[in-house]
Design a protein around this nucleic acid. Structure first.
Lengths: 118, 118
DNA sequence: AACTTATATGAGCATATGCTCATATAGAGA
DNA sequence: TCTCTATATGAGCATATGCTCATATAAGTT
């Protein structure tokens, strides 16, 4: 059982902090872009720099952040370092959020359409 | 289709920003605690203050943040304001993250166990 | 060893975010 | 109207985070 269900007892501060940290890692456009790029498969830092248009320093830093969160994994080969997505739950996570946002936008659009009817 | 699949084309900056913002809303222990409390059903601000142990000002602020993100909805009744979870995707989102974290911890525990074997 | 390429990181600035205190608003009741 | 209760919010401080520049490390090449 991951979380308390009916009991008013709450999760520990520590558990909440860990969950919050996980969400925080995903709360950055550049990191999301990196993850999205990696959806297609393993890539080197330089490739990611080119694809995302970010600076080398910044891309490297964000990759460290993702790696520390165990969302991606490193593989060194000669001069290059290749990163891959190592936590498949990310796919569903992004799908869920995208779906939820789409639905909200659809509702807003619907409201506009109705308003325009009069 | 929520996101590009095989095409190297990436999502728009704007879309990524919105997704990042959604994650950012969930990247706070107190907000997670509020959501978790609301899992059991509608609650007033004062009830949430008591349950979470936060200050009134802080709880109110966080509830505003959650409301702006359309994760919870307000209902005013007399002097009190009641909040409810309005986006069911949150349940699955938290389940996913919890599951992923549990798995990571299990792996770490496993590594420890193996190491202890020698 | 000297040079080049690929990646990581220290330092510093700018901005964002959370927290608290005090106060404002809003509704209910005397 | 005056007061009390419930909620929201402005101001200010402290901290965290992202970005860039410059430099460090590490590995391959000559």
């Amino acid at each position: 059982m991951a979380a308390a269900k009916k009991n008013p007892r709450l999760m520990s501060n520590d558990a909440l902090l860990q969950i919050a940290r996980r969400f925080a890692v995903l709360a950055e456009p550049m990191r999301l872009r990196l993850l999205q790029s990696l959806f297609e498969g393993e890539m080197s830092v330089n490739e990611l720099v080119e694809v995302t248009g970010g600076t080398q320093a910044n891309v490297s830093r964000h990759l460290q952040t993702l790696a520390h969160a165990h969302l991606v994994s490193r593989r060194k080969e000669g001069l290059q370092v290749f990163y891959t997505i190592s936590d498949p739950s990310i796919f569903r996570l992004c799908e869920l959020v995208c779906g939820s946002l789409e639905q909200q936008l659809a509702q807003q659009a619907g409201a506009f359409a109705e308003g325009g009817r009069l």
